[in-house]
């Protein structure tokens, strides 16, 4: 799928929508120690593509996403959106960027203002960017957005506390779509929702991508859902991307030992498969991202770790077309 996207993009001469190169985001945590939340991450996102980002909690996926849309200033490295460095945008360009890039947040309870009505929440972005000509059009547009996400006009004058979690997340999506964005950062949009509601929201996201040609960066820890929604998947561990490939490839042929362990830990809703499969048990938990020692970050939990892993950090290398792995032993 993504190969097709890339091919068609290359044929049409289009460039990646988002180019992230050597992005670093460090936080100072006192005692002169630094937390390397994002440590030298590079990837591209093509127009119309979904890049999934997975990893355990604390691996820096949210920080990475937020730095990519300009919510944080990077410590080092660049993020190019349509060829322009987003952290150096000013004035009208910055405003245009905020219109094109939107975020759907994880917690629909915390990310929507409880003192605003649904119409105010959805309309706010349209007000800022002047996307309507009169009150009538604004109202129509809000009604249209609500219908798009499966709610209706009557909900416009209600407050957030009157809605269930799934409905709130739909309002969050309507809010993001209101300014006609091209790129949406979805930061764990499904994890707060129930199974049947998750499916409803996932279907909405897939449908809008097809209909509106949106580009997503989809951050989640639900690996099955990420595979389902994404064209390509990046696996993060302690602030670094350890593997990046198409979603089919990464699930059928994981090359990094961490990815392998992650894939084998996903529970599958099929007793026969569950009974027969061999789990690769990772021992211990994610090590602290503060003052990580040199070498491969995964060495302390890696079953394959050798002497060289303690000295040199492996770089992200392309081992087969479109499949990048950061491991000394990948493919060996």
């Amino acid at each position: 799928m993504s190969n097709e996207v890339e091919k068609t993009a290359a044929a049409a001469g289009t460039k990646p929508l988002l180019e992230v190169s050597h992005l670093k985001k460090y936080f100072k945590v006192g005692n002169k120690r630094t937390l390397k939340a994002v440590d030298d991450v590079s990837f591209n996102i093509m127009p119309g593509e979904t890049l999934g980002v997975v990893g355990e909690s604390g691996c820096g996926k949210t920080t990475c996403g937020r730095t990519c849309v300009g919510m944080y200033d990077p410590t080092d490295g660049t993020v190019l959106y349509n060829g322009k460095n987003i952290h150096e945008l000013k004035g009208a360009e910055k405003k245009a960027f905020t219109k094109e890039v939107q975020i759907i947040f994880q917690d629909p309870y915390a990310s929507l203002n409880p003192r605003m009505t649904v119409a105010e929440i959805i309309g706010e972005g349209m007000d800022v960017h002047g996307l309507y000509t009169g009150k009538q059009e604004r109202q129509e547009r809000i009604g249209q957005l609500l219908r798009m996400v499966g709610l209706n006009q009557e909900h416009a004058n209600r407050f957030i506390h009157e809605f269930s979690g799934g409905q709130r997340q739909r309002i969050g999506i309507a809010r993001a779509l209101a300014v006609e964005p091209r790129f949406i950062l979805c930061d764990e949009p499904l994890s707060a929702l129930d199974v049947s509601i998750q499916a409803q929201v996932a279907n909405l996201l897939i449908r809008f991508q097809k209909e509106l040609g949106l580009t997503y960066m989809f951050i989640a820890h639900d690996l099955a859902m990420v595979k389902h929604i994404s064209d390509r998947v990046a696996v993060m561990y302690l602030g670094s991307v350890v593997e990046l490939a198409t979603s089919a490839e990464i699930y059928s042929n994981p090359l990094h030992p961490y990815t392998e362990a992650l894939m084998s830990a996903i529970p599958i809703a099929d007793p026969d498969i569950e009974d027969s499969r061999q789990r690769i048990m990772l021992e211990g938990e994610v090590t602290s991202p503060i003052d990580v020692p040199p070498g491969c970050k995964f060495q302390s939990r890696c079953p394959r770790a050798k002497e060289c892993c303690r000295k040199d950090a492996p770089e992200l290398k392309e081992v087969s077309p479109g499949h990048f792995v950061a491991c000394h032993f990948a493919g060996k």
């Binding site: 799928m1 199974v195 998750q198 064209d231 089919a248 599958i268």
Partner: peptide, 10 residues
């Protein structure tokens, strides 16, 4: 309602 790894994407 739960996607499975062996299902087709999207």
């Amino acid at each position: 309602a739960v996607p499975r790894l062996d299902w087709e994407n999207k």
